[in-house]
């Protein structure tokens, strides 16, 4: 089931991505509406993070195209904010909480421009939204998992974007942080911002997201959460029906063949 939508914020057409010739995403098609909190849900290895990376241009697709606000990524990059998995960085880096949040302003600043007082104030404002302002001058090495995620979220807020892509923001955080983040995301959605969240906990997904996408190397379903998180569709996503697809992927890797014939 793939629900269509008018004026989609994200439109993906026939997207295929592979790592070292092994396809991880097959023919992804979807349209996502504005002003919603949208969950990308699927089992381990379903390609959830890869989908976000493809949208952000961090991996090069073999095939297909992605449009954001009807345009290419480069035209609207300042409208888009990416929150990587917090495990992807070394938290022993010599920086304070405020330093990291100010990094969210770097792209706006442009080359050779130093962050100014205004950027610091913006950063503090964003830290305040995630209740981290009192820890602004703390070393990032001293943060807990939940605090690290809040800092990443504040850095994304500092970008003042319209579309947010968040990779597993609820992994390794405490309950209070999880609650705070989802409340904040829902508030942002009401303000017209679109938030796409990679998530793997089915139980909370039903409560958290306005829209959901079920993904397991291909699009199983996209649409309003209550229409998507049905037993039949979940069975299709998490059940064993994909073994043939994985076998094909392994074969492709073994033969070092591209999933698209080179023409």
């Amino acid at each position: 089931m793939i629900q269509r939508t008018d004026n989609p914020v994200v439109e993906i057409h026939d997207l295929t991505v592979s790592y070292y010739k092994k396809p991880v995403l097959w023919d992804i098609n979807l349209c996502l509406p504005q002003g919603k909190v949208i969950g990308i849900i699927g089992p381990n290895g379903a390609g959830k993070s890869t989908l976000l990376k493809a949208i952000m241009g961090l991996v090069i697709p073999d095939n297909g195209y992605i449009k954001l606000f009807g345009k290419s990524l480069d035209e609207v990059r300042k409208q888009v904010s990416y929150v990587p998995q917090k495990e992807s960085v070394d938290w022993d880096f010599p920086a304070s909480v405020l330093d990291v949040v100010v990094m969210g302003r770097y792209a706006q600043l442009g080359l050779f421009q130093r962050p100014k007082k205004l950027d610091q104030e913006k950063a503090l404002e964003c830290l305040n939204k995630v209740s981290m302002a009192p820890l602004a001058h703390r070393q990032i090495a001293q943060l807990s998992g939940g605090q690290q995620q809040r800092v990443f979220l504040a850095r994304a807020l500092a970008q003042e974007a319209q579309l947010y892509l968040m990779d597993e923001p609820f992994v390794g955080v405490d309950v209070a942080t999880e609650k705070m983040i989802i409340d904040l995301l829902q508030t942002m959605a009401r303000e017209g911002k679109t938030i796409i969240v990679v998530h793997h906990d089915l139980q909370s997904a039903a409560h958290y997201f306005d829209w959901s996408m079920l993904l397991n190397m291909r699009t199983v379903a996209v649409g309003p959460t209550q229409d998507v998180l049905t037993p039949a569709l979940l069975q299709e996503t998490y059940g064993g029906k994909l073994t043939i697809l994985s076998k094909i992927n392994d074969l492709l890797k073994e033969q070092e063949v591209s999933p698209r014939e080179l023409t």
Binding site: M56, S81, Y82, P84, S88, A95, M103, A107, L111, F112
Partner: peptide, 22 residues
């Protein structure tokens, strides 16, 4: 010194740097 800000971001979080258009 000129690229201090950019080098810092690349060293700390390459994916974020790339995503924000550096």
């Amino acid at each position: 010194l000129l690229f201090f800000k950019e080098f810092t971001l690349v060293a700390f979080d390459k994916a974020f740097a790339q995503a924000s258009g550096l």
